[in-house]
Structure formats: structure tokens, C-alpha cells
């Protein structure tokens, strides 16, 4: 996979004179507008999500970051009054197509929520949930293997290996969030959407998850919403700045943070709006 080799020298450190192989596009939004009833929350957003990169969405509260994120795996469908126009593709396929199976889409585009939301089941069952409902496993051994490897990837296995049968709700906040990440990656999604995954966590747990995101990039395409500029700068290769429902500026993270083209972006990054 050429994207993998390309990843080794991430864009963050790529010198302008280096030959950069153009990354492939995993998801693409074209002229995406979202309405909640009569209220328009997103205005004609065009954004490409590149494979095996971390794309961060930043912007002041209420600007539509979560809305955009949720339209990428059609979680907006669960809100009765929500309507999406424009075109969003996954590997070139329109995900709002009538014939597309939403359930399958969500298996391919996983999601981690702002607040950890483990199911009131055991740690093991939490992680095994996705693989079981998607028929990815048929024997207990297979299930165990996938649970252990997901927990390992989420950096949680060592902490919970002795209590896999205890309820997931009994973990600390940071552990719960990593459990949710393990749960999401157990179904082997192509894209992982994360909506402020660290907002409920302390700096240590945040550092663990940021490290994790960096590792996960090898196998997944990640979109992360964050309110922390430092976090966006640390974990992402691409950054998109939203304001009042519009995509104001997008580009290589380093460029956005050191050399924003747009005045609003500049103001936001300097902490003058938001």
C-alpha cells in the first residue's frame, strides 16, 4: 500500500522540495449542507479526508464540526429533523445513495464519542459487540483473539487483562474512552471518526490517547474534532477550520497553524474568537 510508505515521512515534516506522493482520498464531501429543521447548520462544505492521515476539525463551539462528523457515517439519520444535501463519498461511493446499507456503512466508518459510552456489559462483551453482530467471528477463540488485539491496539489490554469479565462502566474515564476506541476498531473500520475524544479526560489520559491516535493512523483513516489547538497540531496532518457552519480554511496542519491564509482562521488560532 503506497499510502503506508508515504506515511513514514508525514506531511508534517515533509520539506517542500521533497517529492510527496499524493495521498489517496478515503472520503470526500462535496457541497455538503446540513439542516436541522429550518435551521441550516452547514453551508456547502467541500473537504477531502485522506487515507491513513489524521484530519482534525477545529472551530468555535456550534460551528458545525460534530454535524459534519456525524454526516460522514450518517449518524445524523438518528435525528428526525436532520436533512443532508450534497454528496459524500466513501471510496468514490455515494454514502447517501438509496441502495446503500447504512448498517454496513457504519461498520466501515466507526465512531468514538465525546463522552465515553461503554455499554453496561463486561469489558470483553463491549469489544466483542461489533465483531459479533457483523458475523466477523464464529468461534470463541476468534472472538477472544479480536478482543485482545483490539484492546492491545487501544493500549488498554495490560490494564484490564485480569478483569475482562467485569463491567466496562467500572473503568476510569480514560480507560472507558480507550475501551470505546477498542470497541470501535474491533470491527476494523476503514475510517474512524472521533468527536472530542479527550474532552472528558485528564492530561495523562489525553497523552495516552494522542499517542494511540498516532499509532492507529497506520491502519486507519482518522477524523478528529478537537477544541485544543495543541492537540490538533500534535496529532493531525491535515486541519480544517469551521466557522458559523462554513469551512473557512483547510490544509496541511503545519501551514494552518504557522501561516493561515484567512483572517478568521488566524484570529481563532490566536485565541481571538471562539
Amino acid at each position: 500500500m503506497n499510502a503506508m510508505t508515504e506515511n513514514k515521512g508525514s506531511t508534517l515534516v515533509a520539506k517542500p522540495d521533497q517529492v510527496v506522493i499524493p495521498p489517496t482520498v478515503a472520503m470526500k464531501g462535496e457541497d455538503v449542507s446540513v439542516f436541522y429543521g429550518a435551521k441550516q447548520a452547514l453551508f456547502g462544505v467541500n473537504l477531502e479526508i485522506e487515507r491513513n492521515r489524521v484530519t482534525s476539525l477545529i472551530g468555535p463551539s456550534g460551528c458545525g464540526k460534530s454535524t459534519f462528523l456525524r454526516s460522514l457515517n450518517r449518524m445524523n439519520d438518528t435525528i428526525d429533523i436532520c436533512r443532508v444535501t450534497g454528496r459524500i463519498t466513501l471510496d468514490g461511493e455515494d454514502i447517501y445513495d438509496k441502495n446503500l446499507d447504512v448498517v454496513e456503512l457504519r461498520a466501515r466508518v466507526g465512531m468514538v464519542f465525546q463522552k465515553p459510552n461503554p455499554f453496561p456489559k463486561s469489558i470483553f462483551e463491549n469489544v466483542a459487540y461489533g465483531p459479533k453482530i457483523h458475523g466477523m467471528v464464529s468461534t470463541k477463540a476468534e472472538t477472544e483473539e479480536i478482543v485482545v488485539s483490539s484492546l492491545r491496539k487501544a493500549g488498554l489490554f495490560e490494564e484490564v487483562k485480569d478483569r475482562l469479565n467485569e463491567p466496562g462502566t467500572g473503568l476510569s474515564g480514560g480507560q472507558q474512552q480507550r475501551l470505546c476506541i477498542a470497541r470501535a476498531i474491533a470491527t476494523k473500520p476503514e475510517v474512524l471518526l472521533m468527536d472530542e475524544p479527550c474532552s472528558a479526560l485528564d492530561p495523562i489520559a489525553t497523552a495516552i490517547i494522542e499517542e494511540l491516535i498516532d499509532e492507529l493512523r497506520e491502519n486507519f483513516t482518522i477524523v478528529i474534532v478537537t477544541h485544543s489547538m495543541q492537540q490538533a497540531a500534535r496529532v493531525s496532518q491535515k486541519t480544517a477550520f469551521f466557522h458559523l457552519g462554513k469551512l473557512i480554511e483547510e490544509g496541511v496542519t503545519e501551514d494552518i497553524f504557522t501561516n493561515p491564509v484567512n483572517k478568521q482562521t488566524q484570529d481563532y488560532i490566536m485565541g481571538r474568537i471562539g
Partner: peptide, 12 residues
């Protein structure tokens, strides 16, 4: 959030 968590996993 439980319901959303499950739906986002691709559960019906």
C-alpha cells in the same frame, strides 16, 4: 449515548 454507540457500531 448507549443507543448512538450501538448504532454507530453498525448495529440495526
Amino acid at each position: 449515548s448507549m443507543r448512538d454507540g450501538s448504532l454507530a457500531m453498525g448495529a440495526t
